[in-house]
Design a protein around this nucleic acid. Structure first.
Length: 210
DNA sequence: ACTACGATTCACT
DNA sequence: GTGAATCGTAGTT
């Protein structure tokens, strides 16, 4: 959490096994370069507190289950390190990071995070305000709320996870405790609904669900 | 061409 | 707890 050393994760970082990527993303910083209403460039930094792994053709909840290959899911078959964004319920954009090797159609859904400046103090503050009834203005508990705040939509589909895409991930050494939970919103997926493929920052107040 | 529905959120009962 | 919003995608006709 030091302000001194922060490194940008290279696309290669995402070619590792999907569950490892999903777990390691907890505590990393999702960065978004934007132009605000004054025409000023600014970088939003959101620390990731919750992810889900979707592990390919043998995962009934995954869009690429049974090797499904369509215009939408084609990007999942690329090598890890690119974005997969789609619209669900006609309303919400889902931000996914393609992971694993080429022809291994897996991804990680970013489900929650909280805006941070580089101070340790802010993080501690948010950990203390664990009253879930109170919605902290800097916490984004849910994949749709997160993308709305970061102004992410399908324009990002297929782009590289790097500063050149105006969306990238930084590692500043933060290593929070991680717990596993079942995934959300996939009741249609049979037994897979119980698989422990949701990764959370243990007891963090910004989670979409416990 | 037609139809069903979703990796969600919010308002209301 | 229930239901609406809202539209691209995928599967079927």
């Amino acid at each position: 959490m030091s302000t001194a050393s922060s490194t940008v994760l290279e696309p290669d970082w995402f070619t590792r096994p999907t569950c490892v990527v999903a777990a390691d993303l907890i505590g990393k910083v999702l960065c978004r370069q934007l132009t605000d209403s004054d025409g000023q460039q600014k970088t939003l930094r959101m620390r990731i507190s919750e992810t889900e792994a979707y592990i390919g053709q043998d995962d009934p909840a995954c869009h690429s289950h049974a090797g499904t290959r369509t215009a939408r899911t084609e990007i999942m078959y690329e090598q890890g390190g690119v974005f997969y964004v789609y619209l669900t319920y006609g309303v919400h954009h889902m931000l996914n990071l393609i992971s694993g090797s080429v022809e291994s159609p897996e991804s990680v859904l970013i489900r929650a995070g909280f805006l941070t400046d580089d101070s340790d103090r802010l993080i501690e503050e948010q950990q203390l305000s664990s009253d879930k009834q109170f919605t902290h203005p800097k916490q984004f508990a849910g994949p749709g709320k997160l993308t709305k705040r970061l102004q992410i939509d399908r324009d990002l589909y297929g782009k590289s996870i790097s500063p050149s895409s105006d969306v990238w991930i930084e590692d500043d050494g933060c290593q929070p405790p991680v717990s596993l939970r079942p995934r959300i919103g996939i009741d249609y997926a049979g037994d897979a609904k119980d698989w422990l493929l949701r990764y959370i920052w243990t007891e963090h107040p910004s989670l979409s669900k416990n």
